[in-house]
């Protein structure tokens, strides 16, 4: 079986700085990690590899520094790493990102494509489903567990609001994984020693199959209206009173705010 996992490098902090003019993230100086959902997706792939044998490829689109998470993936046990990077990809929103990734995936043979549910910096949860649409593949989002019958069929446990859905899906397909699905393994020390001896394939626009107008800033219909840090809410007012009086206070407050009239 051939598995591809999309992994994204994200800033390891909630204090993300935002460029006040462009509204895009300033990544310099912020420690970066592999997005947690993606790491669980990678763990899922590596478990399939351990159990049934599989060839696992990771792919990321990102600036040169994103090389780090590909080395990390090598140290965890993947077989191939691809780094999509090109000026033409810069400034991409989720749609343009998914177009670029889909463009690369057209060049790779796979049975299963795994993405994280969402990236902790963007939190849109759009890229996985968008890729599935571009490639016209079945997709299952919010995965907690996945089993493979060794032939063609996956049994999947999908998290929904008040329970689980069990699904059977045939390869090839796309899944998006939750970080609660598993605890990712640590990098192996020997793997770390080898990680920088191995080749990371660097692909640009010329290596992928995509329409140039779908890429980068041009291919990004999203425009940032305003980016701002959420202020701290002041502590609320506390009344220790009986029920009747409490209801009276609440109604009065709601009227003050014109929620009731």
């Amino acid at each position: 079986m051939k598995i591809v996992v999309c992994i994204k490098q994200v800033p390891d902090t909630t204090e993300i700085k935002i460029d006040p003019i462009t509204g895009t993230l300033i990544r310099d100086g912020v420690p970066s990690i592999m997005n947690p959902d993606d790491k669980s997706g990678l763990e899922m792939a590596l478990q399939l590899k351990d159990e049934k044998g599989a060839h696992v490829t990771v792919i990321t689109m990102g600036p040169p520094q994103a090389d780090l998470i590909l080395r990390e993936a090598y140290a965890m046990g993947v077989d191939r790493a691809i780094h999509l990077t090109d000026r033409k990809f810069a400034g991409a929103d989720t749609l343009a990102t998914s177009h670029a990734l889909a463009g690369a995936l057209r060049k790779i043979d796979f049975d299963l494509l795994i993405t994280g549910r969402q990236a902790i910096d963007g939190d849109t949860a759009q890229v996985g489903p968008q890729i599935a649409e571009h490639l016209d593949l079945p997709q299952v989002s919010y995965l907690e567990d996945l089993k493979f019958d060794g032939d063609k069929t996956f049994t999947m446990k999908r998290h929904i609001e008040d329970g689980y859905q069990m699904l059977e899906v045939e390869a090839p397909c796309v899944v998006t994984v939750l970080s609660s699905a598993n605890t990712p393994r640590y990098m192996n020390v020997g793997g770390i020693v080898d990680a920088y001896q191995k080749e990371v394939e660097v692909w640009g626009f010329n290596e992928i199959e995509v329409d140039e107008k779908d890429l980068g800033l041009k291919g990004s219909p999203t425009s940032v209206h305003k980016a701002f840090a959420r202020g701290l809410k002041p502590a609320g007012e506390l009344y220790e009173v009986g029920t009747d009086e409490a209801v009276g206070i609440i109604i009065k407050k709601l009227k003050e705010k014109f929620i009731l009239n």
Partner: peptide
């Protein structure tokens, strides 16, 4: 499991080769 017991032992002897 992750190789910490054999960090500076060469790979040819099953270590991490670190």
């Amino acid at each position: 499991k992750i190789g910490i017991m054999g960090i500076p032992i060469p790979k040819q002897y099953g270590g991490a080769g670190g």
